[in-house]
Amino acid sequence: MSNEPSITALISALEEQRYQAMQSNDLENIQRLLHPELSYVHSSGKVDNRDSFMKNLRDGLSIYHRIQHVVHKVHQSGDTAMVFGEMVADITSHGVAKTIQNRTLNVWLRTGMNWQLFAYQPTPIATRSSSLPACGE
């Protein structure tokens, strides 16, 4: 199924809303955008469901100071949209400040009229000074 431009724009806007909400610790909007059966994999390999992810944010265990993200491609099939992109963030995780740089695969599901993030899978990448090409190069 080919993507309609409106789906790409909608999902890209939802990605922007989610990252903005994470950066501003807007818990209400974050929860609204997350599917009840969320599987959120962190760069460390740790996996959270929606409840444990939200608890980490509420308790200040995961703090997102700066997030930059790029959506490279959105592919829709029925009520599922897959987002291929990159994300760089300055975070504090369990008291440790770090910068993460990941290629990402995000899966959004449509339930009724709403889209929610169902799965997040990052893959850490080496810094741009490495021999690895940027996504799409």
Rank of each mutant, 00 (worst) to 15 (best):
A126G: 01
T80V: 13
H69M: 08
N29H: 09
M54N: 06
Y120P: 09
S93G: 14
A81C: 11
H42F: 05
A81I: 05
P122R: 01
I125G: 05
G45C: 00
A81K: 04
R66C: 14
T111G: 15
S77N: 13
G60Q: 01
F53M: 07
R128P: 00
L38S: 07
A126S: 02
G85N: 01
Q121G: 13
Q121N: 15
M82Y: 12
N102L: 07
P124R: 03
V96E: 08
H65D: 15
K46P: 15
K98L: 09
P122Q: 02
D48M: 07
N49M: 10
V70E: 07
R58G: 15
I30W: 03
G45I: 01
V83G: 00
R58A: 15
W115M: 02
T92Q: 06
K55N: 10
K46W: 15
I91F: 11
W115C: 04
P36A: 02
T123S: 14
H65K: 09
S52V: 01
D79M: 06
D90C: 12
A89M: 04
R32C: 09
H94F: 15
W115N: 01
N102V: 06
L109G: 05
K46R: 15
D59F: 08
L33C: 08
I91T: 06
D90L: 14
G45D: 01
T111A: 15
D26W: 03
M82C: 14
N102G: 07
A97G: 13
H75K: 11
L117R: 06
N56P: 14
L105M: 12
L34V: 04
E86V: 13
L61G: 14
D26I: 06
E37L: 09
S77M: 06
I100H: 07
K55D: 10
M54Q: 04
V96H: 06
D59H: 01
S62D: 13
H65F: 10
L34P: 03
V88D: 10
V83I: 03
Q116K: 04
H35V: 07
A119K: 05
D26K: 02
T92W: 05
V71R: 02
V70C: 11
D79K: 03
Y64F: 11
V74Q: 01
Q121L: 14
T99Y: 04
N114G: 15
F118A: 07
H35M: 11
R32S: 13
I63N: 03
G112A: 02
Y64K: 03
A119H: 07
S39V: 12
D90I: 07
L105A: 14
M54C: 08
R50V: 03
T127M: 00
L34K: 00
A89F: 03
T111W: 10
L109W: 05
H94E: 09
P36K: 00
P36D: 03
L33W: 00
K55F: 05
V74R: 00
I63F: 08
L57Y: 08
G60P: 02
P36T: 00
A97Q: 14
V47H: 00
A89W: 02
T123Y: 11
T123K: 09
H35S: 07
V41Y: 07
Y120E: 14
R58F: 13
L33F: 02
T92D: 10
S43A: 03
A119M: 12
L117D: 12
F118H: 06
